[in-house]
């Protein structure tokens, strides 16, 4: 890996994103619209005393979902384009190392995910009075980490898609089970044993638990740091797997 090549590659990916103004606008506006929707859905439901309001519970987890879902899709398509337009093959004939490209995507879209999470969080805290015991900085950090995890999974999954149609089909395959089993809909400890076992190996479960720790505790807890480490480890593992799918020589 070469820091200069990594930096110019990250810059190139961000520049591509910047030229696509509509995508940037959608990245920032859609979470806001969905948060608004959820806010008014639960606006009339009185919170039971001593319990977290339903909006707070759902919005906190949603802040982690947005970058995860969106960056998975964006990365899958971006990497598929690199493969189908021949830019990937060309890049691999230059001094660029595979890690430069993979980490370039991780950093660029990780940053994009962090900005998205920051905007959505600002809205949730200021406009919709989201209340968390811990600081909003931790919420954004975990959301950004989710973005990096999604980028890594997207880079890996794009190797198994030949067309854009196939690439978007990986979204329900990779993302939906993680959303369903992460503990938002049914608390993880109330699930059947085998569902819990699946939930235990899905990285998003740990990201959601980390967010819930931030929601419930003023200071970062050991559980939160452990969860953050698990998510980061899963991202690194997915990047290593993605590197294995990049071949300089093909048939």
């Amino acid at each position: 890996m070469n820091p200069r090549i990594l930096a110019v590659t990250t810059g190139r990916i961000l520049r591509q994103l910047r030229h696509d103004r509509r995508t940037v606008a959608l990245l920032l506006v859609v979470p806001a619209l969905l948060l608004t929707l959820v806010y008014y859905m639960y606006a009339d439901q009185p919170a039971r005393s001593g319990e977290v309001s339903t909006f707070d519970r759902i919005a906190l987890v949603m802040l982690g979902f947005f970058p995860f879902i969106v960056m998975f899709l964006v990365t899958s398509i971006a990497m598929l384009r690199e493969r189908t337009t021949g830019t990937l093959e060309r890049l691999l004939t230059t001094p660029l190392a595979k890690a430069d490209l993979l980490f370039g995507y991780g950093i660029a879209f990780g940053l994009a995910g962090a900005v998205q999470a920051a905007v959505a969080s600002a809205l949730a805290y200021w406009l919709f009075d989201l209340d968390t015991a811990g600081g909003s900085g931790f919420v954004i950090m975990i959301a950004a980490l989710n973005a990096v995890l999604a980028v890594a999974l997207g880079l890996f999954c794009s190797a198994f898609a030949r067309t854009e149609f196939q690439a978007v089909q990986f979204m329900p395959v990779v993302v939906a089970p993680q959303l369903l089993l992460c503990g938002l809909f049914v608390p993880r400890d109330e699930m059947a044993g085998w569902l819990q076992a699946i939930s235990d190996v899905l990285p998003l479960s740990y990201a959601v638990e980390a967010l819930q720790e931030v929601g419930a505790h003023a200071e970062p807890t050991g559980t939160m740091w452990r969860d953050v480490a698990v998510v980061a480890g899963a991202a690194v593992l997915a990047l290593v797997l993605a590197a294995a799918t990049l071949r300089r020589r093909s048939g």
């Binding site: 090549i5 190139r12 520049r15 030229h19 830019t87 660029l96």
Partner: peptide
């Protein structure tokens, strides 16, 4: 390559500068 392998969503200059930078 036979099919143009440059980034369609970057300008000509941005493409050339990127590949220039890869070669130092």
């Amino acid at each position: 390559t036979q099919a143009p392998s440059v980034y369609a969503d970057l300008t000509v200059r941005e493409n050339a500068r990127y590949f220039a930078a890869l070669h130092g």
